[in-house]
């Protein structure tokens, strides 16, 4: 009951944001957070749950963004069809990237995804007939009623809620347990019958889908995309959001995304430091709190309200004992 109340309250706050947000820019920021979150929610299954350190999801984001811009802009497809197609293309590229690279051990996998992000940037520059090269490409808006700041915010909120619900379903059911087992000990997971490669691949393809969707939304928010929009550091940012929020949770990375997106916007010196700040934050979290910031709250809560285990005395039951001994003697 309490949980439902909290959920309803959070929903009311999020839906009513356009009425109480200070100005258009803050609303834009909230929508940007939503677009990032669509990607990060999927990536969280890969990084946070199955423990595959993919640092190159910005490549998939770029693919989704360019797919939407090319289909809806250059080829003048229906906008919703283009949005769905960019998700599909993202999933397909996730499959193509995941099939060879998910077989590789940790560092190899991270390097493969890093290389993938660099390749996407290279191809975007090389195929300038399609993508506009370094000049970039303008992105068509969503049609009315979603063309205002509030409208696009609500649309992104809706998609983000659906994606969050999907990842939550994966995380709390057997799939999520299997992925966590893969993260913590691959050998054990294999021994108890988790289809390791299959589970990792499904999570990765799903993250490709959300990255494609997130890319399309991101592109609409930016309204004009160039290869410089999709620097490798952006991929690092997604990664840091998850690690800081804590692995194996959904709320943690969400808070991480909100705070890390909003912080540089609210304080100018942080914006100047930019990626140096993210690197420092990542280093501090890895060294001091490898479980993520969420762990800090847990520790604080336990300090405030230490959990007492009630005493559970075990009564001797001579009658039953006698019966058991008799049954053994027979």
């Amino acid at each position: 009951m309490k949980r439902v109340a909290i959920l309803l309250f959070a929903a009311a706050v999020l839906v009513s944001l356009p009425w109480w947000a200070g100005d258009q820019y803050q609303l834009h920021l909230a929508a940007l957070i939503g677009a990032y979150w669509v990607l990060i929610a999927g990536l969280n299954l890969v990084v946070g749950f199955s423990g595959q350190l993919s640092v190159g999801h910005v490549g998939l984001l770029a693919i989704g963004a360019y797919a939407y811009a090319i289909l809806a802009g250059t080829h003048e497809w229906n906008v919703w069809l283009a949005l769905a197609a960019s998700g599909g293309i993202g999933a397909l590229c996730g499959l193509l990237l995941g099939l060879p690279s998910l077989r590789l051990p940790g560092f190899y996998f991270a390097m493969a995804t890093l290389a993938f992000a660099l390749i996407v940037t290279e191809l975007v520059l090389a195929l300038d007939g399609l993508t506009g090269g370094g000049v970039g490409l303008s992105v068509p808006e969503f049609p009315a009623p979603f063309d205002t700041a509030a409208g696009s915010y609500w649309l992104i909120l809706g998609i983000a809620v659906i994606v969050t619900w999907l990842t939550w379903n994966v995380a709390r059911l057997m799939w999520g347990r299997g992925l966590i087992a893969v993260r913590d000990s691959m050998v054990t997971a294999q021994a108890v019958g988790v289809p390791v490669f299959h589970a990792k691949l499904v999570a990765f393809v799903f993250s490709g889908l959300t990255a494609g969707l997130g890319g399309a939304l991101f592109a609409v928010m930016q309204s004009y995309i160039t290869p410089d929009t999709f620097l490798f550091e952006l991929g690092l940012f997604f990664f840091v959001c998850i690690i800081i929020g804590g692995r194996g949770s959904i709320l943690g990375p969400f808070l991480g995304t909100v705070v890390l997106t909003a912080l540089p916007e609210l304080s100018a010196p942080l914006a100047k430091l930019g990626n140096f700040f993210y690197g420092l934050l990542l280093l501090l979290v890895v060294l001091l709190l490898p479980e993520g910031i969420g762990r800090l709250f847990q520790i604080g809560l336990e300090r405030l309200r230490p959990q007492r285990l009630g005493s559970m005395p075990i009564e001797p039951q001579p009658a039953q004992l006698a019966l058991a001994i008799k049954a053994g003697q027979r």
Partner: peptide, 17 residues
């Protein structure tokens, strides 16, 4: 196992920036 990947990546990012 792979915490060192994160920590060296963080350090490398800081140096580069």
């Amino acid at each position: 196992e792979h915490l060192w990947l994160l920590s060296t990546l963080a350090l490398a990012t800081m140096v580069q920036q």
